[in-house]
């Protein structure tokens, strides 16, 4: 663990939190009862968002307390920029997919969850890409 930079530890916390919390969320809301987001779904959504933010904040604070924060240097910024560029492509494709869903699928459930799913996928891919670059070199 000490071999990892502060940035890598932080990425691992976010990645684990996002995969765990979103998996639990989707297990709870899928399959949809009808085509729309009903009140229980909306409550579930904000409940899991709150859980995600809490998990990440606690994780980041714990890392910051246990390990001294490193400098953010040029290599880390370049790795982040490269990962951001790749995930922005995914996001653009996802927005197009959500538009297609909005035009073809009745109700708002799948439209909302297409956008949400793509945003999660882009973020997770961004973090994996960064972790890979930190390990394999950039």
């Amino acid at each position: 663990m000490n071999q990892l930079s502060f940035q890598e530890k932080s990425l691992w916390v976010c990645l684990i939190a996002e995969i765990t919390i979103y998996s639990l969320y989707y297990l709870n809301v899928l399959p949809p009862v009808n085509g729309n987001m009903e009140s229980p779904h909306i409550i579930q959504y904000f409940k899991y968002m709150g859980l995600l933010v809490t998990f990440i904040v606690i994780g980041q604070v714990a890392i910051a307390i246990k390990y001294k924060e490193d400098t953010v240097d040029e290599r880390q910024r370049l790795i982040e920029m490269k990962a951001d560029r790749i995930s922005s492509y995914i996001l653009h494709i996802g927005i197009f997919a959500a538009i297609v869903v909005a035009m073809t699928v009745p109700g708002n459930f799948w439209f909302i969850h297409t956008i949400n799913g793509v945003a999660i996928f882009a973020e997770v891919l961004n973090q994996i890409q960064q972790l890979r670059a930190f390990r394999r070199g950039f």
Binding site: D70, T71, D73, E74, R75
Partner: peptide, 9 residues
């Protein structure tokens, strides 16, 4: 003024 990981890389 960089991280140890950057020097290693």
């Amino acid at each position: 003024g960089v991280t140890r990981q950057t020097i290693n890389a």
